[in-house]
Structures are given as structure tokens and as C-alpha cells.
Amino acid sequence: MPAIHRGLAPATAFFALALTSGLVGPSSAAALEGNAERGKEIYHACEDCHTIDDNDVGPKHRGVVGRRAGSVPDYAYSPELKSSGIIWTEQALNRWLQNPQAMVPGTRMAFQLEDPQARADVIAFLKQYAKIEK
């Protein structure tokens, strides 16, 4: 089972997940092939703050891949993320999941997914299950 590093609140997640696949290497996940089904399991760790279709502690994930950061209506983003100009490409999501506070200092999210393969899997899950079209 993946180990996690919390990011947001523990009642709802602010911490980090360190998976134990043996893979190390911070930025290699984007080059890895993700497994959406495995990503679906790993995504449970995200669900303290996020869901696919509802804003909660974090914004909803429907359509997140390719979306501009800070653009979901009715969600109170931190000023830092809202003004970041980030487009959530797979590469950007990989950096974000590795260490969001290093990518956007001041953002609320502190959840970290340390294993590159786990990040690739979650991104694959988001691509497959969080498409704009239901």
C-alpha cells in the first residue's frame, strides 16, 4: 500500500504519500506510463480533500487535465495558485503532485506523492475518469 505524505489538513489531507515501488527520481513520472486502475486506488488518498465532481477542501477534479489553475468556479483558491498561470498538463501535474509547495509557494496543498509511478498512475486516472464529458 502506498505511503503518503499529507498536504492539507489531516482531518482532510495535508500530507504526503511515499509509495514503495522502489522507483525514485523526482521528475521521471511524466515519462512513465500510468495505470489508471492503479491510479484509481491511489486516488483514495486524495479524497479527503478532493472529489471528481464537487468542490470540497480542494477543487473538483472533473476536467482537471488541461485546465488552467485557479479556474474552477465557486472555489476559493489561494491567491498564489490563482495567479500562477499554470496549465495542468501531465508534466505540470507531475511536478505539482511531487511537491506542490515547491512549485507554488504559499499554496495550501501540502500533499506529496513521492513515487513517480504513483504520480503517473494518478494522472492516468484523472485523464480517464475525470474527463469533462461524463
Binding site: M1, P10, A11, F15, L17, A45, E47, D48
Partner: peptide, 18 residues
Amino acid sequence: RSTAFAQPAPGTAPTPGP
């Protein structure tokens, strides 16, 4: 304790949370 919901004891679940 919370007045709202329980959380797992440390190390007894993959993650903390409701």
C-alpha cells in the same frame, strides 16, 4: 476528540482522514 467524526489511530490506515 472531535465532535464530528473519527480518524484512524496513527499507523492503522494508509492515510489519516474521516
